[in-house]
Simulated scan of single mutants.
Amino acid sequence: MQTRQDTDDYRRIFLQDVPLIDVRAPIEFQQGAFPTAINLPLMNDNERQAVGTCYKQHGQQAAIALGHRLVNGSLREQRTQAWIAECARQPQGYIYCFRGGLRSQLVQQWLREAGVDYPRVSGGYKALRTFLLETLESCAALPMVIVGGNTGSGKTLLINELMAGIDLEGVARHRGSSFGRTLVEQHTQIDFENHLAVRMLKKQHAGCRHWVLEDESRIIGSNNLPLALFNGMQQAPLVVIDDPFEVRLARLQAEYIEQMRLAFEHAYGEQEGWQKYAEYLHHGLFAIRRRLGLERFQQLTQWLDQALRLQRTQGNSDAHQQWLVPLLQHYYDPMYRYQLEKKTQRMIFRGNYAEVREFLMTYSQNSGE
């Protein structure tokens, strides 16, 4: 079998979803890694800390010697077997450590001694991460158009229909509002940036020469948009979806009430799922209680409780409209109108969902896609 070489083709790694074996310590992996990476560390967190302390106090040779003493005998054999098994599962993959240095070279050496020749990523995590940060910078420099509209306008739905659309909330695993959290935990900031960069790289490779993005604030849940991208969004032309109130209300009821109940019950079972679903809705209201004012917050909470009781006993979610309607009319819609007034000079089109979709499809064709 022909030996595969170490690689510095970072672009191919991300475009082709090449499997990666990350041999850094678990704490490093948790702080940030890549979508196709699996963590099989050379050293655990305590071992890495001990070697790091030794390096600072006694230099590289002493640190390497300590590393060999800590990861030896049955422990070395156990970890080597895990790497061998993963190499067999992912024969086209690569190993990496932080800089593509000592740790990944040592793992390579131990694998070779066990009869497995497996390449590593030159430059390691640092080089891969730098490549993705540069990708974000270059992608943020491309032209973009922003999709705005009141809550329930179907902005995210539309973004996902378009070739040039990047669903920032989807990448962030959060829908951006006080009711925005999903059942999946948000990425760390580094992982969010890495996933976003890979998404944009693939779209660009497929021919995208501009972006269609939702009108977002800088922070989506706990993730911050890259500054270059956010700054570009603040200057970009804006299209606005103006759908009838009833259409928006129906979308919100379907997405935040019916679909979320099903999602919670699917994840946790009927009893616990229902409880977590009710907590999710209460938490959404509670998060904006100061802006609502105490009296309105208490009234909406009372209506929410009534709606939950009716939904639980009768299986019908229509009673939720009693608190959803005033929440839109007195909170979300006025807030969005205020924000939109500051952006009117950037507005290039306004219409219902179908009209905005048609406009953006034509916009894409005119942009050479």
Rank of each mutant, 00 (worst) to 15 (best):
Q365R: 12
A25H: 02
L328Y: 11
C139K: 08
H174A: 02
S222Y: 03
L183N: 14
S367V: 00
L196S: 08
N316P: 00
R129N: 00
T80I: 13
R218Y: 06
E258W: 00
E86C: 13
V356L: 14
N316E: 11
Q235M: 00
H58S: 09
A37Q: 04
K126R: 12
Q314L: 11
Q204C: 09
Y331L: 08
G269P: 05
R357D: 05
P326E: 09
G100W: 13
L229V: 04
A250I: 00
T53E: 07
C208Y: 01
L249N: 01
R129Q: 03
M260Q: 08
N150Y: 11
H205E: 14
P244W: 02
T301R: 12
V71Y: 13
Q61E: 15
Q253V: 03
E272A: 14
R129A: 00
R48E: 10
R296K: 13
D215C: 08
M347I: 06
W303M: 07
L106H: 14
G154R: 02
L308I: 09
R175V: 03
L294R: 13
P244F: 02
L324C: 02
A267P: 01
A65N: 14
L213A: 03
R296C: 05
E295R: 15
V239T: 06
L75V: 09
Q186K: 06
S74I: 02
V239F: 08
K155G: 05
L75M: 07
L324M: 12
F131M: 00
P35C: 12
D117T: 08
G315L: 10
D8L: 04
T188R: 09
G315P: 11
A140P: 05
Q30D: 09
A114L: 03
H266D: 09
E270A: 10
V23Y: 14
G32F: 13
G123E: 07
D22Y: 05
G351I: 08
L157D: 12
R12S: 15
I27A: 10
R175N: 07
D333G: 10
Q90K: 14
R175W: 09
L304D: 02
S177C: 10
D45P: 04
T80M: 13
I159C: 05
I64Q: 11
L102C: 01
D6M: 06
I38R: 14
H283L: 13
Q322I: 07
Y277G: 03
C97G: 01
H283F: 09
Y256D: 02
G149M: 04
L227M: 14
H320G: 01
T130W: 08
R357F: 05
E355L: 11
G152W: 00
E369W: 03
M347K: 05
